[in-house]
Amino acid sequence: MKLMTCLLLTTYPEANTVKIASNAAALARQLGAALHAIAVNVDIPDVSNALSSYLLDLPSKIREVEATSRKYGKTLLEAVAKEASQGGVTLSTQEITAPPALMGDTAAEHSRYFDICLVGWAPDNPSARVTAEALVFGSGRPTLLLPDYDDVGVVGHVVIAWDGSRVAARAVADARPFLELASKVTVVTVTDEKPLPGKDIGERLARGLIMRGLTVETALIQAGSRSIAAALQEHALKIGGKLLVMGGYGHSRVRDFVLGGATEGVLADLRLPILLSH
């Protein structure tokens, strides 16, 4: 059965860069997956009255913003189509609309019909972060955060952030398509962040992955004065990791206020592709 990936493209108030097109197509090609790209365009309700229309020409401004959003969406979809064609990736596209406050939730609802969600991330794009949060906690699917500013490359070395928790186990299961392609897997456990369910939890996971035919190493690290997100990402990059797999901690209804430290950290400062699963 062919894997189906879904790329959610943000267009308002900040749009993804076209780099997401090449990265998404590259990931889909490596996975042998089909790609469905969705441009999420804004639909602003008209709440103007006679006075606001006279003084501010609010309806005209709303139409202008919506037109800009659709223009960004069209540009991004065209870029994805070009990259998919060049890479031999099966592609389908879609445009949807949503009010500003519901763009992330609408993206999450549409992504539930696919296997893996893809979303671009950039440090100066809060819209991409909002979409990523909504997908992680509302889609029911693993969400792959892709840097908007750099090439993903070949995902040959997969790093697993492992603490023995339910969400970490869910993330490992969801990462199976990437693990099957990996030439190397490293299981990393941070030992000074919180109590762990055992001293050998990394080795236990590694043994199970080795029995499945994977090449696996383990590592114990300490965060020290760094955030756990920084510690995990820095170690992954140090050992040549191309993808970090980790559980997403948080609560969907209050995700703006209750996010786990590692989840908050990577959403604020992404340094490599990260697969988050809740």
Score class of each variant (00 low, 15 high):
K199R: 15
P142K: 12
R226G: 01
Q233G: 06
E203G: 15
G120F: 12
G138F: 10
Y113K: 14
A182S: 06
L237P: 10
R253Y: 00
D124R: 15
K242A: 01
E180S: 11
L244T: 02
G241C: 15
V155P: 14
I116A: 07
A128G: 13
V159I: 15
V216W: 02
E180K: 14
L214R: 10
A169R: 02
L232I: 10
A229W: 05
G164D: 01
V136N: 05
P195G: 00
N125L: 11
L135V: 12
A230S: 12
V119L: 06
G240N: 14
I160S: 08
D200H: 08
G250M: 06
G247L: 01
I221Y: 01
V188A: 00
F178G: 02
A231S: 00
L135P: 15
R212L: 14
V158I: 10
F137G: 11
E180G: 13
V152S: 10
D115V: 13
L232F: 09
G138C: 09
D115I: 13
I160M: 08
V130Y: 04
A122N: 14
P177F: 13
K184E: 06
V216Y: 08
K194N: 03
M211G: 03
P195V: 04
H157I: 05
V190P: 09
V154L: 04
R166D: 00
G213I: 08
K238T: 05
G153V: 13
G153P: 14
G138H: 07
D148F: 02
E217S: 07
V159Q: 11
G153Q: 12
G140N: 13
A219C: 05
A206E: 03
V216I: 09
M246W: 05
I160G: 07
T215M: 08
L145C: 07
L220G: 09
T215L: 12
R207V: 10
H235V: 02
S252Q: 11
L179Y: 00
A168W: 04
L220E: 06
D256R: 12
G120L: 15
F178L: 10
C117I: 09
